[in-house]
Computed example of a mutant assay.
Amino acid sequence: MQRRPDGGLRAGFNVLQQGSCWTIPAQCGHGHKTNCPYVSCAHSLDTDALRAQDGAPTREMRQFIGFNPLKLADVPVRTAGPLIFVTLADPLPSLDDQLGTLAAAARREPLGRLRHVARFWAVLDCNWKLASDALFEALGASPESGRLEERLATSTVVPSTGATHDELWSAGAAAAWEPLRLDDGSGVRLWRGFPNVVLAALPNHAAAVVVKPTKLDGVALVVSLFAYGPAEGTEVDEAAAALVAGWRAVTAEARARSRSVQPAGSSPIHAHARGRIADDGAPTGRSSLH
């Protein structure tokens, strides 16, 4: 996926796997399972967003798209609030049909006006179908909830911290961010969309968590944080670091829980996956968040 000079987005799929890469590409150099010296290898760990140099593609960008733009087949790309989605489904379903509960959540007007403030990666030791269970539990949701959408009171304790959501996100520099003020006053809201995204709306920020499989029993979480501007006179870096510190505690708890989490009939993603995974193990007709 590329940001065009006019600010729009273009998504493409390399229809010729050998992208003229004579070495392991940068985007999969740290993967646990690299079966191919070209792009499109399985279970790779991508880099963060790559910046062009004065408008010209860099070596890493060339490894994604190749030197011949005709090798790229265009892929539908859509946005919902601050999130970007692509899908390989044919015929193309509507975004709402693909995302279900997550669609309304992503389009909440307050979330659409937030700006990106921080991003970090974390690792869980479980299969991707169980990652959102571990994350929900780390945020204080009941292990037996078994729902795609969860509402928590701001007085709910975040297990690893011993603090409530309200205390965790309103302490120290984290208090600098403006309140999120969701229109329904429902406190903490959590949504998970099949196959690979968790969206959270908390007292003064929101988070989008992408679950990236790295091996059969391991995933990387890409946690992106969004918020309104901090109070006047507050350093943005300090305020963002406070949010990241809180989320690192949450993901550390999720990692500890991921080592013991087991498939259960109550896990909605696991149940959904059983019905949506094709014989070759690939999700069919669903959207992915990037």
Rank of each mutant, 00 (worst) to 15 (best):
R248T: 08
D237W: 11
G229F: 04
L225K: 01
L225P: 01
V222D: 02
Y228W: 08
V219R: 03
L216G: 10
P230M: 05
A220R: 13
G246C: 12
G218R: 14
G218Y: 11
V223E: 00
A241M: 06
Y228T: 00
D217Q: 14
V219S: 03
R248P: 03
A245P: 05
V222I: 05
G246D: 04
D237E: 12
D217G: 09
L225W: 03
V223G: 05
L243W: 00
L225V: 05
V219Y: 04
Y228N: 01
A240T: 07
G233I: 12
A227I: 09
E238L: 14
E235T: 12
E235G: 14
G246A: 12
D217E: 06
D237K: 15
A242H: 00
A227W: 15
G246H: 03
V236Q: 09
A239M: 07
V244E: 01
R248E: 02
T234N: 13
A245C: 11
V222P: 06
A231R: 15
V222Q: 04
L243V: 11
E235I: 08
P230K: 14
A245I: 06
L225I: 09
A241K: 11
V223R: 02
E238N: 13
T234Q: 14
D237T: 13
G233T: 09
G246S: 06
V244A: 06
A231S: 14
P230N: 07
F226T: 05
E232N: 10
V244G: 05
R248S: 10
V222H: 00
L243D: 03
A239R: 07
A240N: 02
D217L: 08
F226N: 06
F226Y: 15
E238P: 11
W247N: 07
E238V: 01
A227K: 11
E235L: 09
V223L: 05
L243C: 04
V223M: 02
D217M: 10
A231H: 12
G246N: 03
V244S: 06
G218L: 07
E235S: 15
A242Q: 02
V222E: 03
E235D: 15
G229T: 08
E238Q: 15
T234R: 15
D217V: 01
V223S: 04
W247S: 13
V244L: 03
G229H: 07
A227N: 12
S224W: 02
A242D: 04
P230F: 15
P230V: 02
A220G: 03
V222S: 05
G246L: 13
W247K: 11
D237Q: 09
P230I: 00
E235W: 09
G218S: 06
V219N: 04
G246Q: 07
R248H: 05
A242F: 01
L243I: 10
A239Q: 08
A240Q: 04
A240V: 11
G246M: 13
L221H: 02
A227E: 13
A227T: 11
A241R: 11
V222K: 01
G229N: 08
W247G: 13
V244M: 04
V219A: 05
E235N: 15
V223A: 07
G229S: 08
V223I: 10
G246I: 12
L225R: 01
A245V: 11
A242L: 09
A240W: 10
A241V: 07
V223T: 09
V244Y: 02
V244T: 08
E238W: 02
A227S: 10
Y228G: 00
L216I: 07
V219D: 06
